[in-house]
């Protein structure tokens, strides 16, 4: 279909799966971290802020390397997760999802944090006087009011995850069907004599996917925004 080989399709579908899983797991953490940074003053706040943004400024290869030595089978966290939960990241698609999630995380946290900071806290006070405890206030007032930011953050993370290359290939290598994502497949095809045409087809797919993600985010954000305008 569309002139793509089964191997090409495998790479496209793997990329979609990796990006979806990465975004789904990053989202609750992203909301929690954004909330902490927006609302709480605590010891280590600056360190957390820095840690979250590190993947944005580090060379992706460095992020991949750091993931490898901490989440690899021999790494402290990787060994722990393997031993007690049977979760393995190294050379698996789950590892690709982890590296993509880490790379997309700062892009996700920022819009959510800005949305949380722009919320009128007095409306949350009003909710409290109406009988809502802190968690209910968060669920029924804070989160819905921050929804455009949450959607924006999720889409940014998804798009970043879809295109991630450096950290992923460093962490989990480039195994067709397991860790060879769209970007890695394009890179691989370009190394093969005569692979240019196939690479070009995948490039078109990448452009279409990225555009679709952007359009979808615009649509969702507009819908969420409209709810406050009164429709």
């Amino acid at each position: 279909m569309f002139g793509l080989s089964p191997a090409d399709w495998a790479a496209v579908l793997l990329s979609l799966r990796v990006a979806t899983v990465a975004t789904a797991f990053a989202l609750p953490c992203g909301i929690a971290v954004a909330w902490l940074l927006a609302r709480k003053d605590f010891w280590g706040r600056v360190a957390l802020d820095g840690l979250v943004h590190l993947p944005l400024v580090l060379p992706p290869v460095v992020t991949g390397y750091l993931l490898l030595i901490s989440f690899g089978r021999a790494g402290p966290i990787g060994a722990f997760l393997d031993r007690y939960f049977g979760i393995v990241f190294s050379f698996r698609w789950t590892g690709a999802a982890l590296s993509c999630g880490v790379m997309g995380f700062p892009l996700m946290v920022r819009p959510i944090r800005l949305a949380l900071e722009s919320i009128d806290r007095r409306i949350e006070d009003a909710a409290a006087t109406l009988g809502a405890g802190r968690f209910l206030v968060f669920l029924t007032v804070t989160l819905p009011l921050a929804l455009p930011g949450v959607i924006g953050g999720a889409v940014m993370c998804f798009a970043r995850a879809l295109g991630e290359f450096g950290a992923t290939i460093t962490f989990v290598s480039n195994i067709p069907g397991e860790t060879q994502t769209l970007s890695a497949a394009i890179y691989t095809l370009m190394q093969i004599p005569g692979g240019d045409a196939a690479a070009a087809r995948l490039v078109v797919v990448a452009v279409v996917l990225a555009l679709a993600a952007l359009i979808a985010s615009e649509w969702f954000a507009r819908r969420a925004g409209l709810r406050f305008q009164g429709e």
């Binding site: 007095r122 006070d125 819905p144």
Partner: peptide, 18 residues
Amino acid sequence: PHRRRVGYVFQEGRLFPH
């Protein structure tokens, strides 16, 4: 506040916009 059952009408209304 949420356990006081004290109603509060604010100067600016503070309705939930969503």
